[in-house]
Amino acid sequence: MFEARLVQGSLLKKVMEAIKDLLNEASFDCAHSGILLQAMDNSHVSLVSLNLRKEGFDKYRCDRNIVMGMNLTSMSKILKCASNDDIITMKAQDSADTVTFVFESPNQEKVSEYEMKLMNLDQDQLGIPETEYCCIIKLPSGEFARICRDLSQFGESIVISCTKEGVKFSAAGDIGTANIKLAQTGTVDKEEDAVIVDMQEPVTLTFSCKYLNMFTKATPLSPQVCLSMSPDVPLVVEYKIGEIGHIRYYLAPRIGD
């Protein structure tokens, strides 16, 4: 028996919005410690790694490990039927071919149940190597989304350049060029408003606007985003999901010029 109940059901709705444009289907690996999802997009340019810890759920039971292959378009349709303040429970029998979503209104007066067919996905389990990153940049997630959106008007690529002075985002195209520099902030009232640059070595890498903009669909999950870069390895874009876990996007750089 698997059962995971989340009083703050809106988090699950937001997680779905953050992955459904990148992945058509994915396996939810449910274990005693929590739920893991790891999948590359069809073109193998990006990877989504979602981690939801058992402790973050209001009730969590997983008697034996189960892998639930889900069509994310269908799951997204179902989660759209939940209100933002609904309590969401996912449950499945040990060897079931369906998963059930239960939405309870806060006053318990409305209870909706949706059963969805599971899929047999032949997906490889991927191991993510431990990587030391030269630059780790924390910035407000809304600011990052704004920068990606603004620079997308200029071209298909965004160059992210990190030095000890701060971080520079730039783009160039037919209409001209754009440069946005963010300096490390001094004292801020709220930690989430800070721009923090932890740099060992300066790094400049080029990334696809299209993918960065898809990652920013996770913005409602967290006020802060963390970018980790090293030469010749994928960029990591991480959003925390409340106290429950995180979503990490890995993106292969664009090469040459």
Partner: peptide, 14 residues
């Protein structure tokens, strides 16, 4: 224009 790299090879299939 730069070419898009891929992730194949970075992640180990377990």
């Amino acid at each position: 224009t730069p070419t898009q790299g891929r992730l194949d090879g970075f992640f180990k299939v377990m």
